[in-house]
Amino acid sequence: MIEFFTSSTFQTVLSALNSGFLKTLQLFFITLIGALPLGLVISFGSMSRIPPLRWLTRLVVWVIRGTPLVLQIIALFYVPGMKEWFTWPSGENGRMLAVCVAFIINYACYFSEIYRGGIQGVPKGQQEAGQVLGMTKAQIFRHITLLQMIKRIVPPISNEIITLVKDTSLARVIALQEVIWMGESFMKGNSGISGLVWPLFFTAVYYLAFSGIVTVLLGKLEKKLDFFQ
């Protein structure tokens, strides 16, 4: 058993999976950093008092949520080149960039609906109390609504974030070399190794460990917000 873990095959597979998982993590964090704030902007659009802006935003959200993420990745990666609008940078960096854009847009749309629910769920009296105390709209949002909204949205957002951990694997559809792609590569042939099935299934360990950590952290955040009701 120990011989297996110290074998050069295992070492090769492990380092390949590690580098694949690094890409998975990169995609995960870039998506969060982009989609969490963008989702807020979209949620404001979908609650706008200007009807055309509201309709347009809701149309976009409907299309993005109503079609598979895989399809959006493929379209975003191939269509601009086919139509000669622009081309993504070549190689792995270009793939990563395209995938990040697709993920950010997709997740921002999901987040925006959660934010909207969170904001609309804060009782109207909270806003009115701020108004009669002479606060500006921005002050009311920042000092009163925001934290109450965050408290409401942590559970549903946590769900989305756990889903995102696993959705990153969809990036392999345009051959981004994330952890699943890496695991699978040892079946076809990689670094002189082929016909190995276990590396693909071994990737599950990475996902389980990472989603475990994310679950614990989000649970802590939820607890932290327990100081008020």
């Binding site: 009782p123 009296g125 909270q126 009115e128 109390a129 009163i144 934290l147 109450q148 408290k151 100081f227 008020f228 009701q229």
Partner: peptide, 8 residues
């Protein structure tokens, strides 16, 4: 209904 700010 008071409308106190619950987080403060």
């Amino acid at each position: 209904s008071f409308n106190l700010f619950p987080q403060y």
